[in-house]
Design a protein around this nucleic acid. Sequence first.
DNA 1: CAAAATATAGAAAACGATTAAGTTAATCGT
DNA 2: ACGATTAACTTAATCGTTTTCTATATTTTG
Lengths: 334, 334
Amino acid sequence: MASMKDISEVCGVSIATVSKALNDHADIGEATKKHIREVAQQLGYSPNAAAKALKTRRSYNLGILFVDKANNGLTHEHFSLILDHFKRVAESRGYDITFISSGHESYESYLKHATYRGFDGVLIACVEYTEPQVQELAASKIPIVSVDYAFDGHSAVFSNDEQGIRDLLKYCYDMGHRRIAYIYGERSSVTEKRLGAFKKTAAELGLTIPDRYLTRAEYRKTDLSRERTLQLLSLPEPPTCIFYPDDFAVLGGIDAITTMGLKIPDDISVVGYDGIRWTRHLTPHLTTLRQNAEKIGEVAAEKLIQAIEHPKETKPEHIVVDGHVYIGGSVKRI
Amino acid sequence: MASMKDISEVCGVSIATVSKALNDHADIGEATKKHIREVAQQLGYSPNAAAKALKTRRSYNLGILFVDKANNGLTHEHFSLILDHFKRVAESRGYDITFISSGHESYESYLKHATYRGFDGVLIACVEYTEPQVQELAASKIPIVSVDYAFDGHSAVFSNDEQGIRDLLKYCYDMGHRRIAYIYGERSSVTEKRLGAFKKTAAELGLTIPDRYLTRAEYRKTDLSRERTLQLLSLPEPPTCIFYPDDFAVLGGIDAITTMGLKIPDDISVVGYDGIRWTRHLTPHLTTLRQNAEKIGEVAAEKLIQAIEHPKETKPEHIVVDGHVYIGGSVKRI
DNA sequence: CAAAATATAGAAAACGATTAAGTTAATCGT
DNA sequence: ACGATTAACTTAATCGTTTTCTATATTTTG
């Protein structure tokens, strides 16, 4: 409620002096500063972000573009972990976080929304990266960092899908598995990478993966993965180990497997992807690739803030964050 | 980039006229409005939220206070669902959402942060409600809606814990269970309510619950619930059915139960609380109280916006949102 | 047809902060 | 002791909008 004007009147100085005192400029006397700060405290002065942003053209607010079709929204554990750690770093550097949306009459596009709010930078994660609106946003002058997708001229943070799939596959190979199936997720750049890495690593290991072992399901859905599992297990030569799109999709597989009267890992081994927390409480614990979501979020925030605060010295980078194989008990040694 | 000034110059009208035209005021001619809108479109005009907020004292931005000690943060599925639906309603009404934090030098308190950003209203959920900082925020003049806790003079949305526990207990009773234990969560107003409802309903049903059947563990943690389960099952007269603090804590129980070589639900029945999505993919599906988190979030947003836009006609309300028993297969009929 | 009503637009003062440039008075060097 | 430096403030413009009055032109009314 109280403004700098109020303080200036009480102190008998100009508004400029108050501003400079509170911002600790060098050309205000120590005694005056002290007095002004005391009065500010006493009046319960609070700066006004709108006025400050208007004048300085810095909002100290970061936009988050974070929408997925499946409406998992904030419920998506992997992305909410990324977001959570992004938020922590941002807050520690004095930035707030606001969600970007579109569709409401006021904002006909993400970019409009972002410029309206004057975000200093934007994090893009978990969206259809090729959507025109997203591309438009990425093509603007706003500093941007994205996750798992690279936009021209902007930094991006990736989880190391190649390494993840490779390590997982090697692990299963080392456990003695030779007939390994991969139920992958719906088409996307991430899926491409994982599938490519799977094939490449299989070739390196001298495994021949029949086409029928590679089949598509969906991320975070159990219906299709259940069905695919049934199909795989009724093949004349069924796999001994099945990879799933993610931890969530594994649940569909588990369901199919138990319905068939089979046991994990004795009859069939399964591995997930992401390393969502609750998988460690399943019995047996799910063997999965634990993505370092925390680090991804942190690095994204650091890179974004760097791009905002030092635009000159900052060149777009692609940072790859490794995950690691979480060894549960869902893969049997054979 | 382009401002109203730019438009006014191109159109040869005053800035005031541009403002009024874009806001569709009645005292501007249709032809002029049309022209101004076209030029605005053409120049890629975007309004400036800071300037608007400064002048109108309305930010169209809602603060979210959402912190929990356990650092689950956004990862907490139940609360992230609430938040997600709160967000949807807010966005559909033209409001953005920004997280409130404190601790950074710039904001010594939640209230300071909120007044700094000029939030039109604040949602308080999933925090230590009795913390001085939270109380200070709630005592301010800012419109507030809270979840699962009532602040003086503000509306609050509750999930119906009494009804939830009662329905769950009745269900188990109907399934033939008489020796029912309740592992409840750490002390909090929510826990009090649930425990109270448990005892009350038990009394109504004529059940006598021995003290040893009521034991404390923690929400969202599996260690203590595992331990408590072991203790309960090694009693001379063990329960036939165990209630857990929440779905997550059930996992600890499941672990303990399987380690002891027992089977769910044949040897022991278990019920959770919350109705988190993945519990429906466990085998057997977890019987649990499905909270209507979506509705809680939506109602919270509606009430908050109502309090903001019609402060006069709005009286603080307490809205109770019912959940329902999700019947999985973890409770056996005996 | 004069007066009153209406329609349309502009001028100017905010909102609360920042900051470049200017002012005054005390201090300094030689 | 005199101009130059420096310390400590103030002035005033500005950021992009909104909004209350005014002002003028056009219609309507009696």
